[in-house]
Computed example of a mutant assay.
Amino acid sequence: MMRIAILLAGAMTVTGCLSEEKAFGKSAGYGRSYHSPVHVHIPQNAPSITQQFRKVEDNEHYGLDVHAPIGTPVIAAAGGEVIKSFWGPAYGNQIEILHPADSSGKTSRTRYVHLEKRIAEVGDQVARGTQIGTLGITGFLSSGFPHLHFETLYRGTSIIHSAEDPNLFWVNGEGKVTCFDQRRHADLSSENFVLTYPVPCK
Rank of each mutant, 00 (worst) to 15 (best):
R128S: 13
F150P: 05
N45C: 06
G80P: 12
T110W: 01
V113C: 00
T107A: 11
T152S: 07
T72C: 13
I160A: 06
G133M: 14
I137Q: 15
I42K: 03
Q51R: 09
E81R: 05
I83V: 15
A76W: 02
W170C: 10
I137Y: 01
T152W: 03
F140Q: 10
S103D: 10
L115R: 00
P73I: 13
H39I: 13
G156F: 01
I75Y: 07
K117G: 03
A163T: 00
N59M: 07
R54M: 08
T130Y: 04
H41W: 05
D58R: 15
S48K: 02
A90N: 09
H114F: 06
Q94K: 12
G63R: 12
L148G: 04
H149F: 12
I160Q: 05
I49E: 11
A101C: 10
H61Q: 15
V38G: 07
K55P: 00
N172G: 07
V113K: 00
T50P: 08
P37E: 13
A78W: 03
L115E: 02
R155D: 10
S108E: 05
S142M: 09
A68H: 08
W87T: 11
I97Q: 10
E60A: 14
P166C: 02
Q125C: 10
G71D: 09
A78Y: 01
I97N: 13
Q51P: 03
N93A: 07
V66L: 03
E116K: 15
Q94W: 07
L98E: 15
G79V: 12
G123E: 10
V56A: 04
R155Y: 03
L148H: 06
H61Y: 13
E151W: 03
L148W: 05
A163Q: 02
G63N: 14
V171W: 10
T138N: 14
Y91G: 08
Q52R: 14
A46L: 07
F86A: 11
T130L: 09
N59G: 06
G139S: 04
G71V: 08
K55E: 03
D124K: 08
E96L: 11
V40E: 09
Q44I: 11
S108Q: 12
D165W: 07
S143N: 15
T50G: 06
S108V: 14
G79K: 15
G80C: 07
I159W: 01
Q44G: 07
L141F: 00
L141M: 01
V82C: 11
Y154V: 01
H39M: 07
L64I: 15
Q131I: 08
T107V: 15
S108G: 08
E116Y: 14
T50W: 04
K117L: 02
T50F: 04
G80Q: 04
P73G: 11
Y112A: 02
I49M: 04
F86S: 13
N93Q: 10
T72H: 13
H149V: 00
